[in-house]
Amino acid sequence: MKLGVLFSGGKDSSLALFKASKTDEIVVLISIISKNEDSYMFHTPMDNVEKQSKKLNIPLIKVETLGEKEIELEDLKLAIKKAIDEYSIEGVVTGAVESVYQSTRIQKICDSLDIHCFNPLWQMDQVELLRELLKNNFKVKIVKVAGEGLDNLKDKIIDEDVVNELIKLKEKYGINPAGEGGEMETEVIF
């Protein structure tokens, strides 16, 4: 099936892309650049999606949004519609793990456009997710942190030591080790 990946350049959408490319054909990346740093829907920052798309050799549809609630969903829908028109995608892949907020909204957009929605990381244990990235040699840089005890992890590449540190911080402060609660943002270096 021809699919587009909702791509932020971070670890979740990159791992989702990796999993989906094993079973289906990924023909386009779709990136929504939000001007709202606190968007519930979209990851920020996303400075290098063009570079990542070139490295992956997968075309990119990039759409900017002001990031206002509900308007950003219209912008996302337009971007997916563009991918249907230009690349004949039959479905989109997301990196949603736990957020029913994100997942529900994307499911509804896909339903309205009559295409499939794939969430290959759905409900995945966060430590398992980090270890799967390591196992598959992803180079993941932590580009933004927002949580207790995380400051010294900014700009680090996630390796076994960082995973162990995140597990310790989970036990100490109750953080989500893969940053599902917005504790950190990442960028994958391809």
């Binding site: 999993k19 079973t23 289906d24 290959p120 759905w122 409900q123």
Partner: peptide
């Protein structure tokens, strides 16, 4: 029908 959907609908069950 699609193998990729098993990650989303089967794995979260078998994880339990």
């Amino acid at each position: 029908e699609n193998k990729l959907h098993e990650e989303e609908f089967v794995k979260p069950v078998t994880d339990l």
